[in-house]
Amino acid sequence: MDTYILDFERPIIELEKKIQEMKDLSIHDDLRLQDDIARLEQKAEKLRKDIYSKLSRWQRVQLARHPQRPYTLDYIKRITSSFLELHGDRSYGDDPAIVGGLAKIEDLPVVIIGHQKGRTTKEKLHRNFGMPHPEGYRKALRIMKLAARFKRPIVTLIDTIGAYPGIGAEERGQAEAIAKNLFEMSHLPVPILIIIIGEGASGGALGIGVGDRVLMLENTWYSVISPEGCAAILWRDSTRAEQAAEAMKLAPTDLLEIGIIDGIIKEPSGGAHRDHDKAAAILKTTIIEELINLNQLPVDQLLEQRIQKYSKMGFWSE
């Protein structure tokens, strides 16, 4: 895989390259070289910790957008023992920007739905850069209702910079499609687990994002609008996105603090893009744990907790 390197990743990646070179050299057991390698590996680990423990909000945004970051189908492939993708909203069409289907994680039958981005130019266009049309939300709802009928829990993976702002999307009722999903998801009688795996912006993210537990991977962001969109509105200048990202407090730790999410999922050292398998393994363990807990709740209690969760969201004075 061609590596795309963010500025703040560079010192780590260079050090790792150096270690690899030394390893390649040390074919005959040169003890002194082995010591050096061990020392450098310690240094690299410390460097990773240093850099990743104090990332700015904008750096999280950059990591969330990293072109090598695992997308929904990358995770599905790694965490499920079987997956059957379902297509279409039974009304207008199939939206490749949202995927969903019947899955098994270990022995647990679940429905998984997520935004899907593309990696190559062709894929990106096909997936519309992960920006759904109304039929995507309607497909998601159709699959979720199916899950509810057969008492299967729902897992959604969020990764979008927003619902697509286009003529067709408006003609086919983008607003109505999203609104309807919020309405239905708030009282679907099965556990719903939401995980932000990359980017989460606006109603486009929330349209498959209402549930019992909301978690974010470490290097992701979630807000009402993309940093670029926010900057364009505030300063009529989308290049001030970095500043907008800071102002909107869109990092996982921010959202945990203000009660919007329930937890943060660790990523492999250096970020999910450095090790897809490990990132997927962590995600899988988390999903299983969460679903086991949610499955224990009686439905009425589950729904009561869900509405209480959203009732509490917000700050005001009176």
Partner: peptide, 26 residues
Amino acid sequence: GARMMEGALSLMQMAKTSAYLAKLSD
């Protein structure tokens, strides 16, 4: 639309109000 100055908190009001409307409908 949503009030940008409250970030994700304003986004969540969409879910909150829709959830109450579902309750009303129920």
